[in-house]
Design a protein around this nucleic acid. Sequence first.
DNA 1: AATCGTAGTGTTTTT
DNA 2: CACTACGATT
Length: 666
Amino acid sequence: MTDLDPVKDLLRSLNPPQREAVTAQEKAILVFAGAGSGKTRVLTYRIAFLLLSGKVAPEEILAVTFTNKAAGEMNERVCALLGPQGQRVWISTFHSACLRILRSHIHHLGLPGDFVIYDGDDQQRLMEGLLKSAGVGLHAYPPKTILKEIERAKNRGIGPDEYHPEDFNPYQKKAAEFYPLYQEALRAAKALDFGDLLYFAHLLFQRVPQVRDYYQRRLRHILVDEYQDTNSIQHLIIKDLLGPDASLCIVGDDDQSIYRWRGAEPTNILSFERDFPMTKVIKLEQNYRSTQIILQGANAVVCRNRWRKEKSLWTANEPGDSLTLFWAEDEEEEARWVAGRIAEEGRGKYRRCAVFYRINAQSRALEEALMRWGIPYTLVGGVRFYQRKEIKDLVAYLRVMVNPDDEVSLKRILNVPPRGIGPKTVEKLHTLAHQKGCSLYQALQEASAREDLPQAVRKKGREVASLLERLRAQARDLPLNELASHIIEGTNYMEYLMAQGPEGQTRMENVKEFLGMLRGSGIEALKEFLDQVALLTDIDEYEDGVNRVSLMTLHSAKGLEFQVVFMVGLEEGLLPYYLRLDDPEEMEEERRLCYVGMTRAQERLCLSCATRRSLFGGQQRRVPSRFLRDIPKEIINQEGRRAPLVPSSWVWEEGLLSEDTHYEYD
DNA sequence: AATCGTAGTGTTTTT
DNA sequence: CACTACGATT
């Protein structure tokens, strides 16, 4: 029987701390939510609770999630609880939220609202151009490294004029030099990079108080998920948005912080109470997801971290089966074992199963084995769909339709497919643009009228310019898929791909798939599409509900759960990854990564490692991961061959196991 | 300007 | 192994 009071009805299914988190009235609420403790539920119920109280309107709530997919799911769940008014709650990622804010207010900063978003690839091309024209060697100063420094600065809210690192290393020196130039180039291209989306949002709030006040007045409740993975600038943005009377509820788990390398500051959550003195702290420690044994194993791994908030996750679930460990000869045997095990465990219900690995390169052996067993699978991530050359080419065309000033995109397509506009011609166009102080696109328009340019250049220029202009006119109101078809026809793109042999075949498939994904018509729909594409993540593309095994990296696995989980490659150097062994803090993050993977499992957790593995070209002898060693052996059931016990005298070839890492199985 | 071949290099995780 | 950069050739 359901209660007539919807609020009571809502709260009945929650445990006491969950209920407390949902109903708390404090201005600052910090929820430590262990893995599988129902935090998404708490967040959605809290939103529902606020709305049902009748004192809060949907527009007054902002919920920030980590991925677009999570945002979409939360939106669905809120709507399921409340009906259509749930649609009006603002649920979004940091990046999407900032994008929306900037689209309507960035003009206050003297930037146009119809900017495009540059991804890492675009950033690199842009930086490459700057370095080249400044005569800086790309080998001595890789664009990537410089960009990393700049991004680091942006993530901490440091602008181009304030960037003066104290312990200048050569890269930082170059970064300091090029940061302003880079920003200028972005501005000229009417583009913002990922970092800018956050940095400019913060800048906007700082410089233009009336915009900040508008949001502060409007937003009475802000909720943030995965707070352990926020960086400084995101923390600042939350503070900007939070008005004096608004309440902030953050949810997170320091044990699941796995994005420190990307600038996330777990201190944001750990020192939250210091930032907001009257914070109400709630701990969700009951796990509803996993068996006791899975939890015990995961805890054994993570509790060895020194830098963590003490907590005790427990479950009322069954003890469950032992963890399974398989010691393979090499990665192929490992993959065969996984496939065989899935055929058995999955019993045709493949969607129950997932395989996690540290790096994408590991997926290959698994794919081959699964294919051989006839087991359907989906690969999350890897070479991202929108990162593929052919797709990026088409996206570049579409971008130029919207924003001809986008120089990186224009340069990308100027000679794709090849139409005789090589580096020399581009150079000439560039000088022309420089002389006239106009954009490359305008220079292209004018090229045909210039007597001082060679015949060939004028002709080619005229052809491309008129093609692009024609398409641009069509972009105004044509359905997007038709527009894209016109691009393909107008450029003979398919013929170009066809000439690339068998590889071109798959590319053509991709292009066709891309065409199928285009919806709507007109320039506004196009803009919206481009925004979406820019902020898409691997996991956003992941479609659950299909009956397939899921293959993904441990990072992508965050936030998901599966009945049966396989974690492969539990070896020193792979997990923990060899590049992160020296720094103890990074080492702890590897440990958390392992913990995140393990806690995704509901019923069964199968672990594996190999004694030999060919990776990066060569074959390497491998030693089992120290994380395996931390799991009490009473809960491990070794399958197949008995594990080769690892004598402490084994020192890994590359010296990754130092002598003080006493390494012994008994 | 385009294309093909070779040599050399460096391999994470992603908004 | 896969990718790129660069150089020689068409």
